[in-house]
């Protein structure tokens, strides 16, 4: 089982790694880089807790082998706050009580961020579609939608 050499840019930082063929992106982030903000809830791509942004798109990091994404750019929840300033989405999640236990929150933020990168003024329906792969058992989603809408409405 040969290791594979991979270059990645994670939250703006370039790194080079040698990974195993079975190493998933979530394993690289959590176990190797200790970027534990990305959560593992189901390991089958059904809960969204492990969502990160890969080359501009929301992906479940449990459904990607790191060996597949040489040269890619990855944004995780740790990369949202820049220079001590929260991303507007993070601030909105705080202001609108969109957080309860907080386990789904990083994935929710990354799905919302991916949406806004592409579409800064989505409709409520588009917000729901962007977040349909992120399960939350605490909030009933209502305040999460309110939070995102507060950022997207002028």
């Amino acid at each position: 089982m040969k290791k594979i050499k991979i270059n990645l840019t994670i939250n703006g930082k370039k790194i080079t790694l040698k990974v195993n063929p079975q190493e998933r992106l979530i394993d690289t982030l959590r176990d190797r880089l200790k970027l534990t903000g990305t959560k593992e809830g189901c390991s089958i791509g059904e809960c969204g807790a492990c969502t990160v942004i890969l080359n501009g798109k929301a992906v479940a990091s449990c459904l990607v082998f790191t060996a597949q994404i040489d040269g890619s750019k990855i944004l995780t929840v740790e990369g949202l706050e820049v220079g001590g300033k929260l991303d507007p989405l993070q601030q909105a999640f705080l202001d609108h009580h969109a957080v309860q236990c907080g386990f789904c929150t990083p994935g929710m933020l990354m799905s919302a961020k991916a949406l806004l990168l592409k579409n800064p003024h989505p409709t409520r329906e588009e917000i729901k579609t962007a977040l349909e792969g992120n399960l939350c058992r605490c909030t009933g989603y209502e305040q999460i939608i309110e939070a995102i809408e507060s950022v997207t409405k002028d």
């Binding site: 079975q22 998933r24 390991s43 089958i44 791509g45 597949q68």
Partner: peptide
Amino acid sequence: ILAGGTDLIVNIHKKSSRLPHFDYLLDISN
């Protein structure tokens, strides 16, 4: 052959019995 991986990666990670034995995983996703 590995493409999008949304099924195959789960099956590999879970060591699914449905997955026949293979010696090489060929990533065509790029």
